[in-house]
Design a protein around this nucleic acid. Structure first.
Lengths: 341, 341
DNA sequence: TTGTACGCGTTATCAA
DNA sequence: TTGATAACGCGTACAA
């Protein structure tokens, strides 16, 4: 059995409470006994049992991080490690720990969340996605636990704190960027439209076209879900249309990589034959061939602010729900070109 | 305050212990009272406080997962989400939770680990990397907590359970593969050589050359650490050598992507001018242009088995330390070609 | 400034 | 088949 506060007390010839007070550096304890007790703590190699502390303090100093469920292989490869970095940065700073909740299926994930909040294992929760009719979010609202969504809530917006980009606006800008280059036949290739991000970006795309009196052509709106084969097929179809697109906006740079390859396979060059702009600006954008012009959504910052907001909500539970929009920025590289008409 | 077992007991007119027994579905309780108590539990919305349970049972049913520290931006992008998938799969299956330990700096990470194992917040630990003189591992050994390394330990091999590929062998095979295609001037481009993987792969590379009486040329051994600029520089240098390499083995496919771009920039084609084989076989390998011949190290499986081993060690602490080697396989795609001499 | 005693929410042992 | 009660390890009023 591990060494407890009792053992320290006994060996130091003081009471348990004294030890406890030394641990929390209470000002009511003389420097002398502090020194003494600390020495004993050192000698015995004592460490406080965080479970016991949680039990009495009714707080865990840990947040639950809920990822997309992973039954599909398409965990957003470029996204996860980077948000995790942002989240970790804050958690380290505020001395919070992270409990990770993945889950094979949606049901599985839900149970996992249920368990950790019902089981009082976390003080707050950070949900890394947003989608319609998510039981997880419904439950979190009802449970009253502080939580924030990384993404735009699909409902109950005023009951939920969230951190997000303005994806509609960002997509408008991206589309606008292509239009300014003279493109009129612009395709939109999304990924998993179960999630709100994709929908928001599509919406922005469409709005931008309309705002610029460019005809929105439904044939140009496609979806490849991180599948190479699907990408090949879609690109082939798109480019063999009577009026093939001259530019494309992609919702993720991994998908953009697929499109780059597909285009190359059928002998088309980027940006000479078709311009490509994508979202996320992950490492992939920076190293592909050609390097991709990409909308930087500031993934690290997203994680950083989201985690920070969770902790704020924990510490001031009655504060208003807050929403934070992280700015985006188009990083120009080599994949877009003026349309010569 | 949340509803506790006491509240249930009171409302159901039974003792606390009866409720507890119902909770664990003890056979000593009559079906009748079980039904009754369960109904009350339902009505009150009672949920077990897992901290309290951990306290008395001296077990947490959670494992700590230690990632590389993240001060560098180069969290191995392609690796993390996929191992996490494997780990999650097992954790869900065995009803374990995951506590994630990242950390800005090495020191930071170390403190994090210290806290979670000293604080009795985890039953076991999974370290997702291996490197020399790692204080984390030293501490884990000394602390007696069950743990496993995903990677090859640098020392104390018989005190440590680990799951790994045979990276030396895998690198030999990859190199051999190029040699069989007729290549003699083969470069090796690694990534962060702080970690054991890179070293093992380099070693295998060198051994293979020697075994095949191919001269090992130190100028051919390089290191680009997920840096595009560095990649450009190295490739330029390499290819302007009097005798430039005709083939390369890369330790990661993200780096391979950089090399692909660099090569293209200076007008060299893959595989016509230089063959490229890489490790990890992530999505990137499958979608790049050309698609990369890659050593599949089975990342999911790695995570799966590692997590499983941790749980086994937890449940049978006195069993021998076990090491598991996950087989690798070269996935042939488009980036290698016979050398025409 | 320090000690006593109780409570946090469970599980487990021993009686009944 | 059920109930009291003692742990588990810690924090904290209250008392001294």
């Amino acid at each position: 059995m591990a060494v407890t506060i009792k053992d320290v007390a006994k060996k130091a010839n003081v009471s348990i409470s004294t030890v406890s007070r030394v641990l929390s550096d209470s000002p009511k304890i003389s420097e002398k006994t502090k020194k003494h007790v600390r020495k004993v703590i050192e000698e015995l190699g004592y460490h406080t049992n965080l479970n016991a502390r949680s039990l009495v303090q009714q707080t865990t100093k840990t947040i639950g991080v809920v990822m997309k469920h992973s039954e599909s292989e398409a965990i957003h490869t470029t996204f996860i490690p980077e948000v995790l970095r942002g989240i970790s940065y804050i958690c380290n700073k505020y001395e919070y720990s992270i409990r990770l909740s993945t889950g094979e299926s949606e049901e599985n994930l839900f149970q996992d969340v249920l368990k950790m909040v019902n089981g009082k294992q976390v003080d707050g929760v950070l949900v890394l996605y947003s989608k319609k009719d998510d039981p997880v979010v419904d439950y979190l609202i009802q449970s009253q636990i502080p939580f924030v969504i990384l993404g735009k809530p699909t409902k109950d917006v005023n009951k939920i704190s969230y951190v997000d980009n303005d994806n509609i606006h960002a997509a408008m800008e991206a589309t606008q960027y292509l239009i300014k280059l003279g493109h009129k036949r612009i395709a939109f290739i999304g990924d998993d439209n179960k999630y709100e991000v994709t929908n928001a970006r599509l919406s922005g795309f469409q709005q931008s076209l309309q705002a610029n009196q460019v005809e929105v052509c439904n044939e140009y709106i496609r979806n490849i879900n991180y599948s190479y084969e699907e990408g090949m097929r879609v690109i082939r179809e798109l480019m063999s249309l009577p009026e093939p697109p001259t530019a494309m906006v992609l919702t993720d740079d991994l998908n953009a990589l697929i499109v780059l390859s597909s285009l190359s396979k059928i002998g088309l060059r980027v940006p000479e034959d078709v311009s490509v702009i994508c979202f996320n600006n992950s490492t992939i954008s920076r190293v592909s061939n050609p390097r991709l012009t990409s909308v930087d959504i500031q993934i690290f910052q997203l994680g950083y602010e989201a985690a920070k907001t969770v902790i704020e909500q924990i510490n001031e539970p009655n504060t208003l729900k807050k929403s934070l929009i992280i700015p985006t920025k188009i990083i120009e590289r080599e994949s877009c070109k003026t349309m010569i008409s």
